[in-house]
Computed example of a mutant assay.
Amino acid sequence: MLMWVLVAVGGAAGSALGLLLMRRPSTTRLMTATAAVCGLMGAFSVQLHSPELTAVLKYGVLGTAASMLAVGVTSRTWIGGDAPLRSALAVARNLAVYCVVAVTCTLLGYLALRSGFTLYKKFG
């Protein structure tokens, strides 16, 4: 029960962070924020923390902020006869770009910290 409460508290903080980052939404700002949040999530998953800290930060704050930024990346809809098709294609394209950026930055964050730990153990 405590874990669910901690995830909910982290989710509220992540929602506030997501709203702060989406104040003046531009594609560049949203993609940069997505890259930063997902990179932090990848780096955070390397270290072993207490389950409570993981619930608050990783699943609560970073997970909620990343999903809110995904909603901000979607484009506006058009008015016309082919609006549903054009809107669906635009949303699918933007979501695909968002997913590529998110997965790449999560992997880069994970590998950066993991390689640093490996080099530290090897040479230290």
Rank of each mutant, 00 (worst) to 15 (best):
L6C: 05
Q47H: 14
V5N: 03
M22N: 06
M31E: 14
G42N: 04
P51S: 06
V56Y: 08
L57V: 15
K121A: 14
N94R: 09
S50I: 06
R29H: 11
G60I: 02
M3A: 11
L111F: 08
R29K: 14
V9S: 07
M31F: 15
Q47M: 14
L21C: 02
T32E: 11
S75D: 13
M68N: 10
R23N: 03
A35K: 09
G14K: 00
G109M: 00
C38E: 12
S26C: 07
Y59P: 01
V61M: 04
V5K: 05
L53E: 04
V100K: 05
M3N: 08
Y110H: 14
S15R: 04
G39T: 08
A55G: 02
L6W: 09
G10E: 01
L62Q: 03
L6G: 02
C99D: 10
V100C: 10
T54L: 08
T64V: 11
T77A: 14
S45P: 12
R114Q: 12
K58S: 11
A55C: 03
A36R: 05
I79Y: 08
A16R: 06
L19C: 02
P51W: 13
T54Y: 14
V73L: 15
L113A: 07
V103N: 08
T104V: 13
T54I: 11
C38M: 15
V71Q: 09
L89C: 04
S50A: 14
G11N: 00
V103F: 12
Y59L: 12
S50Q: 11
G10S: 00
V73H: 05
L20V: 03
R114N: 12
T118K: 07
L17F: 01
